[in-house]
Simulated scan of single mutants.
Amino acid sequence: MALDRWIALILVGICLAYGYAAWFTMDGALAPFMKRNPIWPSTFPKVLSVIGLLTSLVILLGLEKAEPKEADIDYRRLGQYKLDQAVMLLVLMVAYALCLRPLGFIFSTGAFLILGSFILGERKWVVMAPVSLIATFVVWYLVQQVLGIYLRPLPGFLGG
């Protein structure tokens, strides 16, 4: 079985467990007045589990395959792909998650976007830094001011 089908099989298991939690365990603790609402807190997880399960089954059964292409991933040649970039991005994501609270949203997200684009090969600092910082401030403004969800913008020692 090909690598994409093994991954799809793992995702089927994850979607089944997630769907079980969404369909059977999340709604038991709802308050009585919420049970009359048309949308419950478990509505999005239910939809997500069904879509994930259907998509994984399409891949597992091979319904999306037309004819083999040269661009398919060959798991026997994984060393020829850019795994170092993928691993560095995963490490950067973990570092971002760990630095988000102590260093604040603006610094952590800006640094994540700048370093992530550097890892992926962007070398124009004049473009990379302003775009990353503008995107960081726009997201912070939308979440903080428009949605009303508090994000600590600055590190704690700077009064954030």
Rank of each mutant, 00 (worst) to 15 (best):
I149K: 11
D84K: 15
V58F: 03
S117G: 10
E67A: 15
M93T: 11
F118D: 07
L151G: 10
V50E: 04
L30I: 14
V47S: 01
I59R: 02
L142M: 00
A97V: 10
M128G: 12
M88D: 10
K82C: 06
V131F: 15
L158K: 04
G28A: 15
L147N: 00
L11D: 00
A8H: 03
L60I: 04
G110T: 01
P32E: 05
L57W: 05
G110D: 07
L63P: 09
L3Y: 14
M26Q: 04
T55I: 05
G110V: 01
L53C: 00
W125E: 09
L57Q: 04
V127F: 09
V127K: 14
P68N: 10
P32M: 06
L133E: 01
W125H: 09
S49P: 01
P102R: 02
M88G: 09
V143C: 07
D74S: 10
L120G: 08
L115A: 13
V139C: 02
D4E: 15
L11I: 03
P32L: 06
S42F: 05
V138A: 13
W40V: 03
K46F: 07
L30Q: 13
I14V: 05
L30C: 11
L100Q: 03
G79S: 14
R77T: 14
V94W: 14
I51Q: 06
M93H: 02
L103S: 07
K69L: 12
G156Q: 11
G52I: 01
T55V: 11
C99K: 09
N37V: 12
F137L: 15
Q80G: 11
T43C: 06
V126I: 14
Q144E: 13
V94Q: 11
L113C: 00
L54G: 08
E70S: 15
A111F: 14
I149T: 10
L78S: 11
G110W: 03
L16C: 11
I39D: 04
F112L: 12
L142Y: 04
V138W: 09
R101V: 14
V47F: 03
V47K: 07
P41V: 08
M34Q: 13
V127H: 09
L30H: 11
L142I: 05
L103F: 06
L60Y: 02
F24T: 11
L147A: 05
D4Q: 13
T109Y: 00
A135C: 13
D72V: 12
